[in-house]
Simulated scan of single mutants.
Amino acid sequence: MLEELKRLQTHIANFQERLKNLEAENTSLHQQKKEMEKHHDEHTTQQTTTLRSKQDKIDTLTNNLNNLQDQYNALNQDAKTLAERYSRLEKGCTDLKSRFQEILAERNELRVLKEKLHHEQTSAKQEIANLKEERVQLLEKNEHAKLKVEAIIARLAVLGTDEDKNTQEIQKLAHPSEHNEEAQ
């Protein structure tokens, strides 16, 4: 029994030793667990903070994206409006080109008409000058004829044929206005 008691004491000592080891190990594990929980809490807090900052960035980027999409839509609308205006301007330009061509054609026609009228005017001036010259010649001839008639009348008057009917008629023909005045 002593032997059994010694064995039991040895076993108890072993159990006590093992118990101390297990308690030390348990304490160590508790401490590791606390450190791990603390580390995990810190890591979780850090992850939560990171998630919040990432979510804030996502929200900011989403807002920026919405703003940029609004700007893009506005720019698309402006581009459509500008394209329509450009189309109208291009059509107006085409209309102006055709009107300009018509005006050029009218101008050319007017130039031709101007040249024709200028030629006609030159011809008319030349004809007027010719008529004036002819008038001067006719007036000179008329004056010359008048002088001849007056000379003939004067010669007849000198010859004493005042009573001659022919002479009187010649005088009437030469000076019809004088005879009309005398008659009145």
Score class of each variant (00 low, 15 high):
residue 60 T to M: 15
residue 167 T to P: 00
residue 94 T to R: 12
residue 125 K to Q: 13
residue 135 R to L: 10
residue 116 K to G: 05
residue 153 I to C: 02
residue 91 K to W: 02
residue 123 S to W: 05
residue 155 R to G: 06
residue 57 K to W: 12
residue 118 H to M: 14
residue 70 D to F: 08
residue 171 Q to T: 08
residue 70 D to Y: 04
residue 65 L to D: 06
residue 112 V to M: 08
residue 82 L to N: 05
residue 167 T to V: 12
residue 102 E to K: 02
residue 52 R to L: 11
residue 85 R to H: 10
residue 135 R to N: 09
residue 127 E to C: 02
residue 159 L to N: 04
residue 61 L to S: 08
residue 168 Q to S: 02
residue 67 N to F: 01
residue 155 R to I: 06
residue 149 V to N: 04
residue 67 N to R: 10
residue 158 V to W: 09
residue 98 S to F: 02
residue 66 N to S: 15
residue 154 A to W: 03
residue 54 K to A: 14
residue 89 L to D: 03
residue 140 E to N: 15
residue 43 H to R: 14
residue 57 K to M: 13
residue 51 L to M: 10
residue 124 A to F: 08
residue 173 L to K: 02
residue 74 A to S: 10
residue 60 T to A: 15
residue 57 K to P: 02
residue 71 Q to I: 03
residue 106 E to V: 08
residue 145 A to R: 07
residue 172 K to P: 00
residue 142 N to T: 12
residue 137 Q to A: 15
residue 143 E to A: 13
residue 77 Q to F: 03
residue 146 K to M: 09
residue 126 Q to N: 09
residue 170 I to H: 00
residue 101 Q to Y: 02
residue 157 A to R: 14
residue 133 E to V: 01
residue 88 R to G: 07
residue 91 K to D: 09
residue 120 E to I: 05
residue 68 L to T: 14
residue 55 Q to C: 02
residue 93 C to I: 07
residue 81 T to P: 00
residue 43 H to I: 11
residue 89 L to C: 03
residue 133 E to P: 00
residue 90 E to V: 03
residue 94 T to I: 09
residue 116 K to F: 03
residue 92 G to K: 11
residue 103 I to K: 04
residue 145 A to I: 06
residue 48 T to C: 04
residue 113 L to P: 00
residue 79 A to Y: 09
residue 130 N to M: 06
residue 66 N to I: 14
residue 55 Q to W: 06
residue 40 H to Q: 13
residue 140 E to C: 05
residue 66 N to K: 10
residue 151 A to I: 01
residue 77 Q to K: 05
residue 119 H to P: 01
residue 104 L to G: 11
residue 69 Q to M: 07
residue 92 G to M: 04
residue 108 N to S: 11
residue 69 Q to H: 11
residue 146 K to R: 14
residue 170 I to W: 00
residue 94 T to N: 07
residue 111 R to W: 06
residue 67 N to S: 15
residue 169 E to W: 01
residue 144 H to Q: 15
residue 71 Q to F: 07
residue 77 Q to I: 03
residue 40 H to S: 13
residue 125 K to V: 14
residue 95 D to G: 02
residue 53 S to H: 13
residue 56 D to M: 03
residue 157 A to Q: 15
residue 63 N to G: 13
residue 74 A to M: 07
residue 41 D to P: 01
residue 73 N to T: 11
residue 123 S to L: 12
residue 86 Y to H: 12
residue 134 E to G: 03
residue 64 N to Y: 08
residue 106 E to Q: 14
residue 166 N to D: 09
residue 51 L to I: 06
residue 93 C to R: 05
residue 94 T to A: 14
residue 85 R to Q: 08
residue 80 K to D: 15
residue 75 L to A: 15
residue 174 A to Y: 02
residue 98 S to W: 01
residue 54 K to P: 01
residue 109 E to D: 13
residue 44 T to E: 07
residue 136 V to Q: 12
residue 85 R to E: 11
residue 83 A to F: 00
residue 129 A to H: 08
residue 101 Q to K: 07
residue 85 R to C: 05
residue 121 Q to G: 07
residue 137 Q to H: 15
residue 105 A to I: 08
residue 112 V to L: 09
residue 52 R to S: 13
residue 125 K to T: 15
residue 101 Q to I: 06
residue 174 A to G: 02
residue 103 I to A: 09
residue 156 L to A: 01
residue 174 A to F: 01
residue 125 K to I: 12
residue 166 N to R: 07
residue 142 N to C: 08
residue 77 Q to R: 03
residue 170 I to C: 01
residue 164 D to N: 14
residue 144 H to T: 13
